[in-house]
Amino acid sequence: MSSSKKIRVLVAKPGLDGHDRGAKIVARALRDAGMEVIYTGLRQTPEMIVRAALDEGVHCIGLSILSGAHNALFPRVMELLKEEGIDDVLVVGGGIIPEDDIPELKKAGIAAIFGPGTPLDEIIEYIKANVKL
């Protein structure tokens, strides 16, 4: 069994929305792609997400929001990561995120946004290609 480096991913639902179908499907797909996936459950504050990412030593954080609160919460996660001195973690987002919001989110440091209908393989390949192990 290979115990060499494994990609560790935190899949998190910031904010209050309870729609976790997407987050759970992505979590399972990443596992099936050989990654170690830590799922945080619902209603996570940015503070909780960053702390979990820090403690768990993850290489990637996947944030999922369907409520429209992404403009407030995604950049907050990035800010807190910076405060903790974490600059080597890949952060990606998903959910219902209008095209117009994406440039701002990218500027805040979110590496990629995956909207509805994104094939799971695309997400997996993106993470594999972009994480720093």
Binding site: D32, I38, A52
Partner: peptide, 16 residues
């Protein structure tokens, strides 16, 4: 998973 080497680590949810 013995097949893919992946894992879902879910215990943390309860430690929130």
């Amino acid at each position: 998973s013995p097949f893919t080497g992946g894992a879902l680590l879910g215990d943390r949810i309860r430690m929130q």
